[in-house]
């Protein structure tokens, strides 16, 4: 029975992926990506990875779609193909050969499919992956850690250092988004448009001592030996 579900979900996944390729409406593509994530979560459930299915359903079908839609609200939802898009710029760009990507993909796929001949059979308990550290986790974690969910035991205890790294990566991503999205284009005091410093006040508040910050929430500029009034890049004020 689960084999049938497996077959059906994989077929749906392939269909959705093709639909993502073919649509030129970015809004539709983003919604299809959400459906794709939900189907993936279903497939994970069938394959006994309930924790992963949970995460994929919450992250892929939830947060990821919202972020994509927020982006589309800035950039518009139309993907313009080079044939349709007749602007002065693109008219001067030499068109890439459309067949080359298809050729590259077909060759790579053929090599990979050739490689599957040596793969261990699907779902066989004798596969090499099941004879490394996994049996130890399954047998020992019950009395070493004392909680039933082996995934949590491995995640938080046996491989806690790994998870620490992942958490730091997630935090770093937030810092990156903050840095990228807190600068705005503004007019400087000479009336020229340029990329200013962070506009969101209090970007640093809470991270650094308050006496480092000026009244506007920015970092104070260090006292420079040159005389002021040269008209620096963004140091208006």
């Amino acid at each position: 029975m689960s084999v049938l579900v497996d077959f059906a979900l994989l077929a749906f996944l392939a269909t959705t992926a093709i639909a993502v390729v073919r649509t030129t409406n970015l809004f539709a593509a983003v919604m299809l990506a959400g459906i794709y994530s939900l189907l993936t979560a279903g497939l994970f459930t069938v394959m006994d990875a309930v924790d992963v299915a949970f995460t994929e359903a919450a992250v892929g079908a939830g947060i990821s779609t919202v972020l994509m839609l927020a982006t589309l609200s800035f950039i518009g939802s139309k993907e313009e193909s080079p044939q349709v898009r007749i602007t002065e710029i693109s008219a001067k760009v030499p068109d890439r050969r459309p067949l080359f990507p298809l050729f590259a993909v077909l060759v790579t796929g053929a090599i990979l499919i050739w490689g599957t001949g040596d793969m261990p059979p699907f779902g066989d308990p004798a596969d090499p992956i099941h004879h490394h550290v996994a049996p130890r986790y399954l047998e020992e974690s019950g009395h070493e850690i004392g909680i039933p969910n082996v995934v949590t035991s491995v995640l938080a205890s046996y491989r806690g250092f790994d998870t620490f790294g992942e958490t730091t990566v997630v935090f770093t991503a937030a810092v990156g988004v903050m840095i990228l999205l807190s600068a705005i284009r503004r007019k400087d005091r000479y009336g020229e448009e340029r990329w200013g410093e962070e506009d969101v006040p209090n970007l640093f508040r809470g991270f650094v001592p308050n006496f480092w910050l000026g009244d506007d929430g920015r970092m104070r500029a260090p006292p420079s030996p040159q005389e002021p009034g040269e008209g620096g890049e963004g140091k208006a004020s």
């Binding site: 924790d51 949970f54 909680i147 969910n149 938080a156």
Partner: peptide, 8 residues
């Protein structure tokens, strides 16, 4: 999360 699917 200790007893079923779930976690941080």
């Amino acid at each position: 999360g200790d007893f079923g699917p779930g976690g941080g």
